[in-house]
Design a protein around this nucleic acid. Structure first.
Lengths: 99, 99
DNA sequence: TTTATACATACATATATTTGAATATACTAT
DNA sequence: ATAGTATATTCAAATATATGTATGTATAAA
């Protein structure tokens, strides 16, 4: 079950997703969505105290890289975490970051 | 066991570590070290087909962010993964990246 | 102490990412 | 149709990251 062949495309995909998560604001977004599984953009950018455009940008990155999904609800767009494996990663990182 | 308070320092630390891993070459390095737990710089940069300075740079990032450790062995410097949790993360990412 | 080897560092350039301000689009209600 | 609200996009400036070339440092062997 071990792939020693270095598949460039896979490496890029994995790196890309890691970089997507690897930003304080984006981790904060994921964290918020861990507590409250669906949030709209306004709630998120006000909760984080950042510009709306900035939040939109980060949300787009997380969505593009497959971390979040979104669906429209009237005027609002609701974002949520695409899969739970992500939370596991965050937990794992948090456990590891005490070194 | 859930911390909903957003600790900026922790977020930065986690993000920083994720970004450290979030580079194809650096994932490749971790991958190599998964197969062979201790490698010197020459072996790594020749194995990856990159410049020595570039490998040294990536290794330094991984070391600084607490992902790898190094120890001298004569003329060589041996690098190894600092803890196994990282491999778990990589595995996890690999599992998740098929979306 | 000289020479060769292994690695690290410094620097410049190229490229990518982040941010805010302004603008555009989508939807709702009137 | 118009106005207001929610979100996305565009653009430019600031900052961060990556890469190659050159140079520096540490160790080993002669």
């Amino acid at each position: 079950m071990k792939k020693s062949v270095l598949d460039v495309a896979k490496l890029e995909a994995a790196a890309s997703k890691l970089r997507a998560i690897g930003h304080p604001m984006r981790i904060a977004i994921i964290d918020m969505l861990n507590d409250e599984p669906q949030m709209n953009v306004t709630r998120i950018y006000k909760g984080l105290g950042i510009e709306q455009a900035s939040a939109s940008h980060h949300l787009n990155i997380l969505k593009t890289k497959g971390v979040l999904v979104s669906k429209r609800d009237g005027k609002k767009i609701l974002y949520s975490i695409k899969n739970t494996a992500l939370s596991e990663i965050i937990d794992c990182i948090n456990r590891c970051s005490d070194y």
